[in-house]
Amino acid sequence: MRPRPPAMRTKRRYVLARILPSGVELDQKQVYLSVIEAVTSLLGDAAAGLAQPAVVFCEGGYVVVRCRRGTEKDIAVALATVTAVADERIALRTVATSGTIHALRRRMKPVRQLSGDGEVKIGETYFAVYRYPRQKVDLVEKGIKHQKSLFFTEADLEER
């Protein structure tokens, strides 16, 4: 089958979103299911069908969502209502929209974790410490599953 000529193809837009909290590993299919659920529940089946949202890739703390041109604002709003992926609490922060993935890759800044990790006890619970730039400190409860996360700063940690 011959491919469609370029002028006849559907015009696409790509939305780049940052995944919070930093350092969380997500499965692309699970992200897709969460995005589709958010888009469908917010905009309805008809609008979701026309927008054709799809997760192109999910790596390095970022996710790229593809949609039809003209629907990118609706998709960006729907991304703001994503609160969890496979029982993992997350947030998607829209960074940029573009017509090419190449342009979005330039906007992806790798999230670098700083050294000096350790553990801290808050109340009766032990938390693993993950440090990030701008004095941000994420505390993840030590355990196997359903670990609680706390979001502090260096100053907050020093006060304890």
Binding site: P21, A76, V77, A80, T81, T83, R89, A91, T94, F151
Partner: peptide
């Protein structure tokens, strides 16, 4: 109640447009 619940000004604008 968490940084995960905070939204940007642009996202707030989009949500209010609903």
């Amino acid at each position: 109640r968490s940084i995960l619940g905070q939204r940007s000004v642009r996202e707030t604008r989009g949500l209010c447009a609903l």
